[in-house]
Every structure is written in C-alpha cells, then in structure tokens.
C-alpha cells in the first residue's frame, strides 16, 4: 500500500477549508478594526499587517491541508490519510463497518460536497470521517459498503 493509490479529495474542499479558516480568523480582524477605532491610531497601522497575515493564512494553510489529505477505496477497504504534524493513515475494511453517515455541513452544501462517516465497533476510531467528497462520490461509496456488508452476511 503506497501513497500512489490515494485519490485527492474534491477540489472544492480546498475552498471550503479556506472559507472555514476565514470564518475562524474573522474575530481577529474585527478585533483589529475595533482596536484601531478605540485607540484612534491612523487607519491601517494595525489592520494592514493583520490583514496580510490573515490573507496569507487563508490562502496557504488550507491548500497545504488539502494536499495532505487523500482517500482510497480499493480492495474493499476505506483508507483515509491526513495531516503532516499529526499525520494519520487509517484503514477500515468495508466488512467492519457498522453503519454509515453522509453528512453535509452548511458550507459543504453550497459546494455540493459531503462528509462520509463510517462507524465501527472498535473503541479507537469508533467513527472515521472522510470530508470533502462530492455528494455523488460519498453516496457511491456508501452504496458500495452497504452492498459489501449485505453480500457477506448472506
């Protein structure tokens, strides 16, 4: 099993991550604006640097995170790889899946994306979430896992 088997998540997932990062950073920018207004400093002296940092974060960090993520469904196994500092590489055999969720957050819905969550009986990795799949892909994987579970227990 090498990293070559991994497929990238949907391209739009990077945009979703950027929007989420932007929402996370928003309080900082608001804080900067308020600070500048309250202290009466010249416009841009605080907002400027912070905006530059925020923009850099929003543009680069989510892209890096996106590139580190990958998934594979070959060989009747679901594999999900993510992260660099906290790199994890998780494999769940289809035959071990208890039940399956296809979730769509608000932002994901705008972009037609979904998060696939498979639940296992284990205490560790009781649920494994694969974000950033197109809704159709998520549903297809769900059907594949369902079919496999059905086939095995027959």
């Amino acid at each position: 099993m090498t990293d070559d088997d991994l497929s990238r998540l949907d391209r739009r997932h990077a945009t979703v991550l950027q929007i989420e990062t932007a929402i996370g950073i928003a309080p900082l920018i608001v804080g900067a604006i308020v600070a500048e207004l309250v202290l009466g400093w010249p416009t841009g002296i605080v907002i400027g640097p912070i905006a530059v940092v925020a923009l850099a974060l929003i543009l680069s960090l989510p892209m890096r995170r996106y590139r580190r993520k990958g998934y594979a469904t070959t060989g009747d196994r679901l594999r999900y790889v993510q992260g660099w500092i906290r790199h994890s590489d998780t494999v769940v055999p289809f035959g071990r899946v208890q039940h399956i969720d296809v979730k769509q957050g608000l932002i994901e819905r705008w972009f037609g994306l979904a998060t696939l969550v498979v639940h296992t009986a284990g205490m560790h990795n009781a649920s494994v979430a694969v974000p950033g799949l197109s809704r159709q892909t998520a549903v297809d994987i769900r059907e594949a896992i369902s079919a496999r579970i059905r086939r095995e227990t027959m």
Binding site: R86, S88, V91, R96, T120, A121, H124
Partner: peptide, 27 residues
C-alpha cells in the same frame, strides 16, 4: 480488529517510527 490507524509526527517520520492503533470492540 475493526480498523487500523498509523500515526506519525514529523520527528517520527524523520526517525522512522510510528504509532499503530487498532480498533478493538470494548478495548
């Protein structure tokens, strides 16, 4: 076993070791 997860930080990757977590029902 229900699942298998391999975890590595940057130092672990550099030095060639990893943590392996298995999903075991109830344990």
């Amino acid at each position: 076993l229900q699942s298998a997860e391999l975890r590595q930080g940057p130092i672990a990757r550099l030095r060639g070791y990893a943590a392996l977590h298995f999903g075991l029902p109830g344990g």
